[in-house]
Amino acid sequence: MSVEAAIPEGYVKVFSKPKALSDAKYTYCPGCHHGIITRLVAEAIDELGILERTVGISPVGCAVFLDRFFNCDFVQAAHGRACAVATGIKRARPDLVVFTYQGDGDLAAIGAAETVHAANRGENITVIFVNNGVYGMTGGEMAPTTLPGQRTTTTPLGREPRLHGYPLKISEMLAQLEGPAYITRQAVFDYRHIVRAKQAILKAFRNQLEGKGFSLVEILSTCPTNWRMTPVEAGRWVAEHVVKVYPLGDLKDVG
């Protein structure tokens, strides 16, 4: 836990770290949107006052160290299995607030089955889905979400849909199912979008508290390192290109 410094007289505190976050340093690359998203989740946990009954599930990928950053209980899951692990926890202890935090390789490739079926069962969990279009941690390989033409270490000539498949719009797929309560796609490349993403995350947790069922917030993210871009270029890339393939907004909302 962080130690609160005394506020000198005449000063007003306008910014502080969420209580849900520990003092551990992020392991994310500079300019990566994971840092913003992790913080938004922590803020939501603070605002809902659920820190002491929340269990997070970390994936395999850049968020594998998530348990260090948070002050709540955590379970580290095998690659892609977070939604199954979350199902086990939530079914065993429905009083806990359970969320997964997964990347696109984890959730939409190796874990596609676990994700689809947890959604289809309407498991009362919250899923934070960070989509940056590559496998970040292993070295920038093609993900199911990689854009057509995008160069990755396993598509050195660019993703050719006829050879490598098309960008997998898993949120659109999930929105077709009866089970989920809320499926939305957000971004965090500027302040306006960060505020909206925060509201979506809050709603996804509130849905769980109200027993509404499976809620997933997809958040378009950057990977400046593997995209070979500066943070500013990467953010702009999301705003100008990625959102065209992955349009922002609610895909399903039972209210």
Binding site: V55, I57, V75, A77, A78, R81, A84, V85, A86, T87, G88, I89, K90, R91, A92, R93, L96, A113, E114, V116, H117
Partner: peptide, 26 residues
């Protein structure tokens, strides 16, 4: 108790992982 038919053997064992982590006999 809780009975759940999973979508796969892989999912079933990972549900066990979750339930056991949450402190119940699984």
């Amino acid at each position: 108790g809780v009975f759940l038919q999973a979508e796969s053997e892989v999912a079933a064992i990972n549900m066990v992982y979750g339930a056991a982590a949450a402190g119940v006999r699984a």
